[in-house]
């Protein structure tokens, strides 16, 4: 298999991170915000794996696993909140109305 160049991986990660960032900032729907967050987390994971491969250290992939665990719990909690909001009369899931939420 062709090797992926380290520099290209960093470039890809930076671009991916920025795209995710723009997504978090621009989308008002909470579902899309969560997806954009996942893209950002993946970018961070890519950097870890790439650095691990570059300096031949298994720690990179260990960190990737940690990010995976983090993403899993974040997504689970986030989606549970989304469902909860949806059931409580906020079907548009607009993040900008969150400031009026009580309790």
């Amino acid at each position: 298999m062709t090797a992926f160049p380290f520099n290209a991986a960093l470039l890809l990660a930076a671009l991916l991170f920025s795209i995710g960032l723009a997504g978090v900032l621009v989308r008002r729907n909470l579902v899309f915000m969560l997806m954009s967050l996942d893209i950002m987390l993946n970018a961070a994971g890519l950097v870890f794996v790439a650095a691990g491969a570059r300096w031949q250290d298994a720690s990179g992939q260990v960190m990737f696993l940690m990010i995976l665990a983090l993403a899993a719990s974040e997504t689970a909690v986030g989606l549970a909140i989304i469902l909860c909001l949806h059931a409580h009369g906020r079907p548009s899931l607009d993040a900008d109305t969150g400031n009026l939420l009580r309790g």
């Binding site: 298999m1 090797a3 992926f4 991986a9 794996v49 790439a50 491969a53 990737f64």
Partner: peptide, 19 residues
């Protein structure tokens, strides 16, 4: 795929399975 090409087959597999 990128991860696999970086030599991290394990991470690639986890990415597919879990993510």
């Amino acid at each position: 795929m990128v991860l696999a090409m970086l030599g991290a087959q394990f991470a690639a597999a986890l990415e597919i399975i879990i993510y």
